[in-house]
Each structure stands twice: as structure tokens, then as C-alpha cells.
């Protein structure tokens, strides 16, 4: 069996003196969509940030395609094919949508650009009209789409999605779910942190449930849904 795309083993993380993660382990295989579910403050966002190298103090093993990435700087991890859609979207509000995308555009590891503008706008039709709009003039849903698009133009192989449904209108959530399914069908691996179990159920194969920085349960998504309900 080949190495999983993302492998986390015994991950610990701290904010200042406060420990946020306690020995978390999980894997995401190639082309797989995995849900990370848990309450507010359970450590979902911290896990994704730790993968991106955005938590300064951490310990444990992080491997991408079998290669250790735990000592790499953030931009290096991104260039290895990890796309990050942060919790609060973190759109550059003073830049236009187009500028936000230009900034992030880079070919994939194999040198190809799988997300030329036409394909991107086919996936998110709304974005085409927003090209020249500044980030601070967009709605939450529009910003969310832009954040996903911005991650895609970096041609990632693994997409880290942090609570994409938070604070977004239900209709947009539906549109995004459709987009995510397309991406998954396209072979992209996804690690989705969500409180919205319904969204996870539509997309993910497996789930990890974490609470207070520790892994509580892992198994097939179908079992997770019934467990939560």
C-alpha cells in the first residue's frame, strides 16, 4: 500500500503556555475526503493550522506523501501541494478578487495548471462578475467562494477546508457542497473541519471526532452521522 497523502502522528500543539492538541493522529489518503468534527474549541482549526506550519510550537510527525514536513516553513508546505482555506476566510480585503487570485496562482508540482480562469469560473460562476470587486465589498458567501478559489489556483493536491459553512447563507452552502463534490470527483484530497455534519455527510468518506484536543472516535462517515444524531 502506498503512503497516505497526509499523515499526522502524535500531533501536539500549544498557544503560548496553553496546550491545544494532545497526541492527535489521522490520515488522509489520495483522493479521499475526510471530516474532522468536533465542537467549538475542540482543536479542529488548530489541527489544520499545524499542518500548514502556522502554529509556532508543535510536536509530532506530519508527513506529506511520506515525506516529513514538520520542520518546513509555511510557504514550502503550500508549494508541496497543500491548499488552505482558513476559518475566517482571510481574504485580502484591499485587493480585488482577481488580485487575490493572481497572488496565489502557481503551477502544481507536476508543472501543470489545472485551474485556468475559465475552469475556475465554471466552478464558481458568481466569481466571474466579482473580478474587479475589492475583498471588503463582498458578502461572506462571496468571500468564502473566493477563499476556496484562491486555494485552488495554487493547484493543490490536498485541500484543507476550515469550517467553510460558518456564517454563510444555506443556498451558498449548497452551491459550495456541489463544488466540493466536483473537486473530490476530480481526484483532490480534502480534509474538512466542520460542525455541520450534514455537509460532511454529503462529501466525506470517513470522519474523525475530536474533543478538547484529543481524538475521541474515528470511523466511516455514515456511522458518525448516526452517532451525532
Amino acid at each position: 500500500m502506498t503512503a497516505p497523502l497526509l499523515e499526522i502522528e502524535g500531533l501536539e500543539a500549544w498557544y503560548g503556555p496553553a496546550q491545544a492538541l494532545f497526541g492527535l493522529s489521522l490520515v488522509v489518503g489520495g483522493g479521499e475526503a475526510v471530516a474532522l468534527i468536533g465542537r467549538n474549541g475542540a482543536g479542529k482549526s488548530t489541527t489544520l493550522k499545524a499542518v500548514m506550519g502556522l502554529v509556532r510550537r508543535r510536536a509530532g510527525r506530519l508527513a506529506l506523501d511520506g515525506a516529513d514536513i514538520s520542520a518546513l516553513p509555511t510557504h514550502h508546505i503550500a508549494r508541496l501541494g497543500v491548499g488552505y482555506v482558513p476559518e475566517d476566510r482571510r481574504i485580502f480585503t484591499e485587493l480585488t478578487a482577481e488580485e487575490n487570485l493572481d497572488l496565489a496562482r502557481r503551477p502544481g508540482r507536476d508543472g501543470t495548471d489545472r485551474w485556468p480562469t475559465e475552469r475556475l469560473f465554471a466552478l464558481f460562476p458568481n466569481l466571474a462578475e466579482l473580478r474587479r470587486r475589492r475583498g471588503d465589498a463582498m458578502s461572506g458567501g462571496e468571500q468564502q467562494m473566493l477563499a476556496v478559489a484562491r486555494a485552488l489556483v495554487g493547484n493543490p493536491e490536498l485541500l484543507l477546508l476550515d469550517e467553510p459553512s460558518e456564517g454563510v447563507a444555506p443556498i451558498i452552502v449548497e452551491e459550495m457542497t456541489t463544488a466540493f463534490r466536483t473537486l473530490k470527483a476530480d481526484g483532490l484530497s480534502i480534509l474538512l473541519s466542520e460542525q455541520n455534519v450534514a455537509l460532511c455527510a454529503e462529501l466525506c468518506d470517513r470522519a474523525y471526532h475530536i474533543d478538547q484536543g484529543e481524538l475521541r472516535w474515528s470511523g466511516p462517515m455514515a456511522d458518525a452521522s448516526s452517532m451525532v444524531e
Partner: peptide
């Protein structure tokens, strides 16, 4: 301009 607003996010985009 982007980094002036959010350096971390700029790094997360591979810069």
C-alpha cells in the same frame, strides 16, 4: 499589500 494585511495567509499561499 496582501502581506501588510495578513502575513500568515500570504505564506499559506506559498509565498
Amino acid at each position: 499589500r496582501a502581506a501588510t494585511q495578513d502575513r500568515e495567509m500570504v505564506a499559506a499561499l506559498g509565498i
